[in-house]
């Protein structure tokens, strides 16, 4: 079962208005923590959207051997004009979770991301970093089996980034499979077991993280590592 992976892509590709956004690719996701790496505009967000089912592939297909519940944290999370608590409760409400239980789970999720005191604050008035934490709590409250994260620390300072990494680690430890895009190499090194490298809409390699950082398989990845290494 694990050998066959929890998600398979069969010749999955995407064209939009004649532009090729993702070359058809075969992939099998088996790892618990995968990082999608690549330069700006490489197609990381596009691939995540396809995996999460927000974009319909123009060719090939996604196969979930056993259906898994999913959540996603977006590059720029959208907050409703409501309190932080109401934002976290929203997904639970849709799932018909009864109100006392909803409140309890939302409050617990907020506490887990360190925003226990923020429950009554209007969500859109929070800073970008705080909103990113709310987005994590919002998805965590749903206890997804797969969590997609699109550059979850892109605009955060080092301290918040570390905190977000800690939270992602906790979510993974609770049993969720993590697929995360990033161009922070240190972060990918710390969090990922496996790296998918993507360049100009083409998946160039899927490599165990330790190996990828030592000796990437593609020339483009070598260049990427050289350019971005601090």
């Amino acid at each position: 079962m694990t050998m066959s992976g929890w998600l398979r892509l069969e010749a999955l590709g995407l064209n939009e208005n004649g532009a090729r956004l993702l070359n058809p690719v075969n992939l099998t996701l088996t790892a618990g923590r995968t990082a999608i790496l690549g330069a700006n505009g490489a197609g990381k967000s596009t691939l995540l959207r396809l995996l999460h089912g927000l974009l319909r592939p123009s060719e090939g297909r996604l196969i979930w051997p056993t259906p898994l519940s999913q959540g996603m944290v977006f590059q720029r999370p959208a907050m409703l004009r409501a309190t932080v608590l109401a934002n976290v409760e929203y997904g639970l409400k849709i799932r018909g979770v009864e109100s006392a239980e909803r409140r309890r789970r939302a409050a617990a999720a907020l506490a887990q991301v360190g925003l226990g005191d923020f429950a009554k604050r209007p969500a859109r008035r929070l800073s970008g970093g705080e909103q990113q934490h709310v987005a994590l709590a919002r998805v965590w409250a749903l206890e997804p089996q797969v969590l997609f994260l699109d550059e979850p620390t892109a605009s955060l300072d080092p301290a918040s980034s570390r905190e977000v990494e800690r939270i992602i680690g906790d979510i993974a430890a609770a049993g969720a499979r993590i697929v995360m895009s990033s161009h922070n190499l240190g972060q990918a090194r710390r969090l990922a077991e496996e790296v998918i490298f993507i360049d100009h809409g083409a998946v160039l390699e899927q490599t165990p993280a330790a190996e990828f950082f030592k000796q990437p398989g593609s020339e483009a990845a070598r260049r990427f590592l050289r350019d971005e290494m601090p």
Binding site: Q70, F74, A78, R81, I94, L142
Partner: peptide, 27 residues
């Protein structure tokens, strides 16, 4: 434009999403 993917990701179907947007735009 701003909320579509987010709401869908959280599990909202179309009618629910529209209701959410109307409430969100109440002011």
């Amino acid at each position: 434009q701003e909320y579509r993917e987010q709401l869908r990701s959280l599990g909202a179907r179309r009618t629910r999403a529209v209701a959410t947007l109307l409430w969100d735009g109440r002011f």
